[in-house]
Design a protein around this nucleic acid. Structure first.
Length: 578
RNA sequence: GCGCCUGUAGCUCAACCGGAUAGAGCAACAGCCUUCUAAGCUGUAGGUUACAGGUUCGAUUCCUGUCAGGCGCACCA
């Protein structure tokens, strides 16, 4: 189908492009370069439904004043396209404003049609089928399994999951992965911490060594061991028991983490163990690390210095080269990470997205450099940094340290604030700003949580529908049978504004996905909910005027669908009653 | 010392590859429930977009510098 027979922004951009070309071939314009044609939604009343700055950006190329260019373009548009009865009669009026904006005013029918579109597409409204869907992997949370998840991990969890849903909405295939650092010194330390607590339970007064994990949960684990095994581990040297304590602690903690994650509404496709990186899968095959190192070696990216093996990451933007094998022969953590990333690429993902806290941002250049050194295109790896969460209690900062054991867990916040509010709270802010999370505030005042504002709007609409049905109105039938002319009663300014807001939703999803910014959705939903609450307050939906009632039911049903679709992408429930 | 992020209303934050008059929520003040859910609505007030330059027809947005806050700069994980 000829795209020019479509409607909306994309079509308009095409028409503009064609008009520009024609103006040039007819001599009213004579530049050559074609700028990208952008249509935006003006912020203020009277500036049309769509606007373009094309004439402004052409000024330099055409060496004419923007107004002059705008006049030429508009003349071309009006001659060729926009006359009553034409394919583009949905464009009602074109105006030139200010320094040379071209403002397009669309017909009432154009907007009413979107209400019908929303109903025919339902849950698919705002979802796209990508002609070239990408296979994307998002790796997030990946907190060390040395203690329960704390609030900061919640930000990563909310962000990663919403992002995954967002990218799925625009047609990609997304896998969610959690990388488990389940080996190394910290695991040993974890086992030792539990072991010492275990001995303590038998009355030994033990000073925990510097750096031990000191949280209450370590004692809980030790108690569980005591309960099931008694004093079996008191005898014999520590080194004999350590593997057991390490494994037991790890398994306990990982079960907590998995429970927290699942109750938080996140479903990881894969929990990737760091151990897998080091194991040899088959006798003749090397481990993932050895494969990665061999690959780097073949690309001449490795060299020896001071008895260690280095990777030349400076060639790709890193500050300094990095050690992968220490002079004592041990692998560095970075070596694991290189191998992990190679493994991810080799699993066939078109794109990898890592979500990391700001405390790891210094690590980004070296990982990207290593990926490029292995021959993977830099654009295939995106590291999204979210700034840290400042935990406050009554306005005062709470110092958090896993080792000291003073931290607020995600579980606590979830239990007291609720999953929906917690997720929404984390998603309300751009990820690269630090986030103040005041526990007292979040816990106490449910009405101060904007999520209720949005959910309440949804519940309200459901309630109205229920009332209508109580009055023997078959809302489903009304919606099915509605034709565009039945929607004409929706002529109030607030109704028009609502419809336009709904119509913007698909564009918003697309741009939020492109920018990897789910927070845009939270703002959109708050705006839509606000418009609805105002509308509800000022206008009755169900009245004696049947035609009006039907039209309004269609409108609020469309709002309901969009609210639901938006909340779905954020992973937040849409309750039918509150 | 070097690098990354941030600086917008009293507070927390938006602002669509640079566009028209910078927007919300909270807090403050003044109002609205015998009618579809008051977890709601209406109104008032609040701004030199940290500061100084630069690029541009146009800058919260891009560039340079200064200041302030956060984070990071291992043969640790």
């Amino acid at each position: 189908m000829d795209k020019r027979e479509g409607r909306g922004k994309d079509t308009l951009a095409l028409i503009l492009l064609e008009t520009l070309t024609e103006c040039r071939s007819q001599g009213t314009l004579n530049g050559a370069e074609v700028p990208s044609i952008l249509l935006e939604t003006p912020k203020h009343e009277g500036q049309g439904d769509f606007a373009t700055t094309l004439a402004l950006s052409l000024a330099k190329i055409e060496k004419k004043s923007p107004q002059e260019i705008a006049r030429a373009l508009v003349a071309g548009l009006e001659n060729k396209w926009c006359w009553p009865g034409s394919k583009t009669s949905w464009i009602e009026k074109i105006e030139i404003a200010g320094p040379g904006y071209i403002n397009f005013f669309l017909s009432a029918d154009y907007w009413l049609q979107t209400l019908l579109d929303i109903h025919s597409q339902q849950a698919d409204f705002g979802r796209f089928q990508s002609p070239k869907p990408q296979k994307i992997q998002i790796e997030f949370v990946s907190a060390n399994p040395t203690g329960p998840l704390h609030v900061a991990s919640g930000r990563a969890a909310a962000l990663g999951d919403a992002l995954a849903r967002l990218l799925e909405a625009v047609g990609h295939r997304v896998d969610r992965e959690y990388y488990l650092n389940d080996m190394g010194a910290q695991m040993t330390l974890l086992g030792r911490s539990t072991y010492l607590r275990y001995r303590e339970l038998f009355g030994e007064a033990l000073a925990l060594p510097e750096g031990s994990y000191q949280g209450q949960y370590i004692i809980e684990i030790a108690e569980a061991i005591k309960k099931s095994a008694g004093d079996r581990y008191l005898q014999g040297p520590e080194s004999e028991h350590l593997p057991f304590f390490t494994q037991y602690s790890f398994e306990t903690i990982i079960s907590w983490i998995k429970k927290d994650i699942s109750d938080f509404g996140v479903d990881f496709n894969h929990w990737f163990s760091e151990k897998e990186i080091h194991e040899k899968k088959e006798v003749l095959e090397g481990s993932e690390v050895s494969k990665a190192l061999a690959l780097l070696k073949s690309k001449k990216m490795l060299y020896s210095k001071d008895g260690a093996t280095w990777i030349a990451t400076t060639q790709f933007g890193d500050d300094k080269d990095r050690v992968v094998i220490r002079s004592n022969g041990a692998l560095t953590y970075f070596a694991s990470d290189i191998a992990y990333h190679r493994n991810k690429f080799e699993r066939g993902y078109d794109r990898l997205i890592n979500i990391w806290g700001a405390d790891h941002h210094g690590y980004v250049p070296r990982v990207k450099a290593a990926a490029v050194a292995m021959g993977y295109k830099s654009e295939r790896l995106t590291v999204l940094i979210h700034q840290l969460v400042n935990l406050l209690r009554d306005g005062k900062a709470v110092k958090m340290s896993k080792r000291a054991g003073s931290f607020v867990t995600l579980r606590e916040v979830m239990n007291e604030v609720g999953v929906d509010a917690t997720r929404f709270f984390f998603l309300m802010r751009r990820s690269d700003t630090t986030l103040d999370f005041d526990l007292e505030l979040a816990k106490k005042a449910s009405s101060e949580n904007p999520v209720y504002y949005v959910q309440y709007a949804y519940a309200r609409l459901c309630s109205i529908t229920r009332v209508a049905e109580g009055k023997k109105v078959d809302v489903g039938a009304v919606i099915r049978e509605t034709k565009i002319e039945d929607l004409v009663p929706l002529s109030l300014p607030e109704e028009q504004a609502l419809i336009k807001q709904l119509a913007q939703y698909p564009d918003l999803v697309r741009s939020a996905a492109e920018a990897l910014e789910p927070h845009r959705l939270t703002f959109y939903l708050q705006t839509l909910a606000g418009m609805l609450h105002r509308y509800y307050f000022n206008c009755r939906i169900i009245t004696d005027d049947q035609a009006q009632t039907k039209a309004r039911l269609v409108l609020i049903s469309a709002i309901r669908i969009v609210l639901k679709n938006g909340l779905d992408i954020l992973g937040i429930s849409a309750p039918e009653q509150m």
